[in-house]
Design a protein around this nucleic acid. Sequence first.
DNA 1: TGAAATGTTGGGGCG
DNA 2: ACGCCCCAACATTTC
Length: 492
Amino acid sequence: MPEKHAHSAPVILWFRFDLRLHDHAGVRAALETGRPILPLYIWDEQPATRPLGAASKWWLHRSLESLDADLQRHSSRLIVERGAPQIILASVAKEYGAKTIYCSQTFDPQNEYNDEGVAEELSAAGLELKRLNNTLLALPGTLCTQAGNPFRVFTPFYKALQASGACDIETLPDLPSKPWPRPNRWPKSLTVADLGLKPDLTPSGQDWSQGFSRFKPGEAGARGALRHFLRNSLQDYEKERDRPDLDATSHLSPHLRFGEISPQRILHEIDRATEANHPLASGAAKFRAELAWREFSYSLLAQQPRLHEINFRRDFDHFEWRHDDKQFRAWCRGETGYELVDAGMRELWQTGYMHNRVRMVAASFLIKHLLIDWRRGEQWFWDCLVDADPANNPASWQWVAGSGADAAPYFRIFNPITQAGKFDPKGEYRAQYIPSYPHLSTKPVHSNSSTELFDEPGNVSTYPQPIVDHAFARDRALQVYKNRVADEEYEP
DNA sequence: TGAAATGTTGGGGCG
DNA sequence: ACGCCCCAACATTTC
């Protein structure tokens, strides 16, 4: 009976990377108390983990607006604050008499560790921080090998995940559509716009993020993307998922990253779509495996909390990467002279996204053709991708570099020409992002880390020649990787 | 979730 | 009719 508690102490619902209302254990638990609910977002200027990239901030801004709109449909609002979470939480709780705070675990180990401290501090003030899983199918660390060790290879991990029953979704309870109980007084808060998360306009006044329009941040956008994918692309997903020239993938990654949809919901909807339609089954199986890769990445992040800066295989610590700012810059700008790589890098810059197949080719090019440290590429992606994820991004880069678990063998070197012929046969994808050269001059400045990269127009009037010869680079990479120090000393 | 080098086979042109 | 060569097509091995 919500009415009974309408004047009782409220509970705080602290949102972070769980920006949705459905399929959310914290939302459910808060509603079940029947108490007034204070939905809260805190922008932390000094986060415990590395700060969000520019593209992610843009997404966050839009997603918070969407969450606020969704809350208004329940006669509530999103309360927005800025500062250190433990201080904000304690002060809001004190002012409104709240004793319980619900939040979701982030599964970023550094942040989890920080949360422990926050929970202790709050506990000393008589407040309980309830941390729930709204992010993963299986908690990292719950799956291990027969010897009791965490998995280092994907396939056995995936088998264990399936055997655990975590992928069998029985039912997902509906979110009641009734108004949420409110406290007598409503906090005066900032607005989402006050946080200033939107990137600056270009010098020419052009909004850099207009290229991001293929996405609709927020829970409704996530549901829409899933519906579109199930209806149009699941059937041929196995066959066409590697084709950047087609609309063949789910585009759910940024929605998952910001918790606008749960993996359980995705599995549930896939099952429902598949039951009625058998031809979808092979595509469904392939897509389920992709979701499992996300779980695998988080299990690796649990094993190596500094996954974005430390080689998972420590024998890579002695690898002698080349230091070549000029070539790194060319790669960032999409000026390597290899069309598929350049199209991908321009897609990234213009849209905050890159097709997965192209990510592999572009990453392989930086690492193997240019022999530049994978961390530099990872950081660039972190800054530019709307789906930049603390587990997926570093795990995938390390996979390409060969320094990761279950990584690509050192001799697997993508030929960007061959890859283009196979996966963009008509050149439509390449033409979309390299319509005529140069195009970078109209591009805005947005990057956290490398603003100087794009602050002046390219002065090249024709498409560049390859910055490195493929055959030469391939042989060089094979040599360097083969002679890598301590290669033969590696033991898991 | 490669690519290139090397090996094998078989059809066809040709003296 | 036969052997020889060429080479595409495919398979295997190597990096």
